[in-house]
Nucleic acid binder design. Structure first.
Lengths: 340, 340
DNA sequence: AATTGTTACGAAAACGGTTTCGTGTTAATA
DNA sequence: TATTAACACGAAACCGTTTTCGTAACAATT
């Protein structure tokens, strides 16, 4: 076993001072060529690498980013994370991930844990509970301490910080417009409780598109499902009791569940009922027929969030930039589950 | 903006020494009750929290774990990660994730980056390229430096360290046995290049099960696909050219692709051809019919790996424990794609 | 010979904690 | 009254860096 070597070790062995070693390794003009060569050779031989922790303490920056996401086993968040990791890594940052599990308590604990020096900034998507309770003091306090935060996807207007969001409203409008253009009249929405900002936006887009086309909104055609429950019965009843031409689902699972039940009920997709889901994940690509979806470009979203954060962190001393909200444009991917 | 407060700040304000503050906050018997109360109240009021970086430097341990995985957008790795994060968090550790992207270079760079003080130990699954090239000096060097490593799933016998693996061979045998019991004779295997230890083990299990039942191995019934290519043509030809009763696929995607193509070719699943896949992910649960799979219990695997690592790290000074390899027992989940 | 300027290096502070050890003050004991 | 013990606190070292500033040694200038 050969443990890591420090500046002190090199200094002792070569009979010079620690400062000389440090300067030599940074190629300082203060040190003579002979001494520099000697020190560099020694350092190289023993594979010297500066200790990150000591550097962090000295520089008051860790080059770590904290990422808090509600759930990692979820295609969208996973792709966002990949975008964050990729960009951060290119810029020399590491990523510490915590999973809030949709709980505000975990969100708070994890953030406070990391905020005590472990990271230079946060990227997060709010937990369901945080959105439900509308409780953001933990975020405000961190911002107050000067720790930059970037919110993505599940954001809130209560907090002033950089944000990255999808054009949910617009893309929902576009999806419904697509249904209408193909002749659908009875268009359903399958969504979650609307304390989620994204569901709310998608609902608005849905309603908007109907209004524009003078289609009367039928509240019965809006099915609200919960995240964690078994929804099969509700979905079955919904499609038994309502004549529907098309259905927009706010996530991939709902869309696949709907498609499966619709088919079991004897309807044809897309001829009897068209379906469009959100999140262009693996399920959508391998279903039969393939699912038309809204691609959220998670990876781009992650990269954008990381760039926003790193730009702000590396500009900390200069003039304060105003906060930005970047909008990622979703893409409607038309596949077999809707009529072209 | 109110920046973080330090011991020094408290000491200055309260006109005591830094050591007194430190001791008071740790409730040391050395300090009088009066002084302690005063200091605690002040610290609480200003929300004092010790700086993690300073603690890390002092204690020579970061309470961070480095996790290196080949790919995060992959159900199995994601669940393992969740297990790691969950257990680590309970024990007060944070998790720094790097994605190797199946590249040995990234694996090396990331590990060296983190090894310079940022983490206390690693949990990783080898990249494809690392397995292909059989190149492990980076791991050996880190172990040499006294940094503990736990390998999971994609492991190698070249490295001595704690490991967590699936009983791949056995479960493949069981799956094939299940096929045979239901009357299948022509049993195919759809797998990846066998430099992956897991594919290799599954292949051995497959061959073994056939041998035990005196079924002659037909090399034509083993289809080797690559990870990144479009395999649809190969799969189609395979099922056109070979009479097959059942097929075992080493991952979920292959299984779904096979099922889809098999159905397109006019066969019935499971009556004409049974299918079992690996990885009990979301695809398997929502396909029609639902896919019989080998559940790899990723979360348990992650927890086990994290426990192994943390146990070793927290036992560092005591006697060296011999390295362990924990085997996670996979479960064969029988659903609609195979005959019971 | 005295002054000035380089060169090449070392001492020390700082980052924010913990911990060992030393010490002044008071009270208890002989 | 002198010694000892207990109490309550502070000084300083240490973790591994970076960086400012001071300075010894020598050369060059007047």
């Amino acid at each position: 076993m050969k443990p890591k070597i420090t500046l002190k070790d090199i200094a002792r062995e070569l009979d010079v001072s620690i400062s000389t070693v440090s300067k030599a390794l940074k190629n300082s003009a203060e040190i003579s060529k002979d001494t520099k060569d000697k020190i560099k050779a020694f350092a190289k031989f023993y594979n010297y690498r500066p200790n990150n922790i000591a550097l962090s303490l000295k520089n008051k920056r860790t080059k770590n980013i904290g990422v808090i996401i509600p759930d990692i086993v979820h295609h969208f968040f996973t792709t966002v994370f990949r975008g964050i990791e990729k960009y951060a890594n290119e810029k020399g940052y590491n990523v510490i991930v915590c999973i809030s599990d949709e709980s505000i308590e975990k969100e708070v604990i994890n953030m406070e844990m990391l905020a005590n020096g472990s990271i230079d900034g946060f990227i997060l998507s709010l937990s369901a509970e945080t959105q439900l309770k509308n409780e953001f003091t933990h975020l405000k306090e961190l911002l107050d301490q000067g720790i930059p935060i970037v919110l993505f996807d599940r954001v809130t207007s209560e907090i002033e910080c950089d944000k990255v969001v999808l054009n949910d409203e617009e893309i929902a409008r576009e999806a419904v417009g697509h249904f209408i253009k193909s002749g659908a009249k009875k268009i359903a929405l399958v969504t979650t409780e609307n304390y989620f900002n994204v569901s709310e936006s998608r609902r608005i887009g849905y309603l908007d598109a109907l209004k524009v086309q003078n289609i009367k909104v039928d509240e019965n055609l809006i099915l609200t499902l919960s995240h964690d429950m078994e929804n099969d019965m509700l979905i079955t009843e919904f499609f038994q009791n309502n004549k529907v031409d098309a259905v927009l689902c706010v996530n991939e699972i709902f869309a696949i569940q709907c498609m499966s039940i619709i088919q079991e009920l004897g309807f044809n997709v897309p001829n009897d009922i068209s379906i469009i889901g959100f999140t262009d994940g693996i399920l959508s690509r391998f279903s039969v027929p393939r699912l038309s979806t809204v691609a959220q470009h998670g990876e781009l979203m992650g990269e954008t969030a990381a760039k926003l954060l790193i730009d702000r962190m590396e500009r900390l001393n200069e003039v304060e930039e105003p906060y930005k909200t970047k909008v990622i444009n979703a893409t409607l991917i038309k596949r077999g589950s809707s009529i072209n």
